[in-house]
Design a protein around this nucleic acid. Structure first.
Length: 325
DNA sequence: AAGACGAAAGTGGTTGA
DNA sequence: TCAACAACTTTCGTCTT
């Protein structure tokens, strides 16, 4: 029933690493004049011959780090590997953990009589990480957020934005008295719109099992309390997604967006469902470019009826003089 | 036979008294 | 709270390819 949340921050990429890969292999003699008097210019990143000026290598890329560290502390501070901190995990992906080995920081073994104390500390530290009801609710909410957004196929950026929105509303005590699922759904809806990758209330409702009406209500509440101001969604934002589901080309996509812009100028879009408009323009665009799609297919993916597609299509053709058929 | 078309009746949400 | 309303849906018969 539930998707298991995957902590993507911990995914690692394995690549073969050559030993001393960043060391530049310096040629020792010039192929032109056979002189061994070569010059390495670190500013221009090239190796040239001092005698004849022949450039042996250019655009050399130094794969090493640009910093140096003289002790452990500096190294820890300057090194940049590891998962980035993310708002989508309860502790932002930066937990503190006490190591399991019974050795202190200097590598000395911890005396037997203190072992019990250390075990106890380790246990407490683990518990403290998700402490208090607030933190615990946040952890629940964020796993719910992950579940819902993967159902909606939202990219990481939107998830993180949704997490930020949820965190701010939790901070402002907006969640009290409302269901976590409902607030998470509203955060996702808001974030998706803000990132110009809108999902309809129907879609979010489907993914979250929260009533459409409730999500709308929560959305307005969040938008008001956090003063998030969003323009009404443009049909153009739906076009790329619909087009890719229908397997339509980029040419058709841009044609459809073109039609949307023209209709906007003529004020044909006010009060019309953006999804219906997006679907209808995609239909028109593919007809104009000679690609056959059925009204039924287009209507289905936009979750509108065929009749709506026909109505939009009729309107646009009349008002924009698109009499190609 | 599948798809397009359009009329007519029904539905759910918004608006204004 | 309720009626009016616009947008949209469902249904169905007819036409076109």
């Amino acid at each position: 029933m539930y998707d298991i949340p995957i902590n993507r921050g911990m995914e690692s990429i394995r690549m073969p690493v050559q030993k001393d890969a960043h060391r530049i292999e310096e040629p020792d003699i010039c192929p032109e004049c056979k002189s061994s008097d070569l010059k390495f210019d670190s500013q221009k990143a090239e190796i040239s011959c001092r005698r004849c000026g022949y450039v042996l290598e250019d655009s050399i890329v130094d794969l090493g780090q640009e910093w140096r560290a003289f002790n452990h502390e500096q190294r820890a501070k300057r090194t940049r590997v590891g998962a980035p901190a993310t708002p989508a995990i309860a502790d932002k992906g930066l937990p503190t953990e006490m190591g399991k080995s019974n050795r202190d920081i200097n590598g000395r073994s911890i005396p037997e009589r203190n072992r019990f104390q250390y075990n106890r500390l380790r246990k407490l530290n683990k518990r403290m990480r998700i402490s208090g009801t607030g933190e615990r609710n946040l952890a629940i909410a964020l796993s719910e957020l992950d579940r819902q957004s993967s159902r909606l196929g939202l990219p990481r950026s939107v998830r993180e934005d949704a997490a930020i929105i949820y965190r701010s509303s939790a901070k402002k005590n907006l969640v009290r008295g409302r269901s976590i699922e409902g607030m998470v759904a509203a955060s996702i809806y808001t974030a998706a719109r803000r990132c110009n990758l809108p999902r309809t209330l129907d879609e979010v409702s489907e993914a979250s099992n929260v009533k459409k009406k409730q999500i709308g209500k929560n959305y307005r509440f969040i938008a008001r309390e956090l003063s998030i101001k969003l323009k009404p969604t443009s049909p153009a934002d739906y076009v790329p997604r619909f087009a890719s589901v229908l397997g339509l080309s980029g040419e058709i996509e841009s044609k459809a967006i073109n039609i949307i812009n023209q209709s906007k100028e003529q004020g044909l879009l006010t009060g019309r469902e953006p999804t219906g408009v997006a679907a209808a323009t995609l239909y028109i665009a593919s007809m104009l470019l000679g690609v056959r799609v059925t009204q039924k297919d287009v209507a289905e993916i936009a979750n509108v009826s065929e009749v709506t597609i026909r109505n939009r299509y009729k309107e646009f053709c009349e008002k924009l003089n698109l009499s190609a058929f």
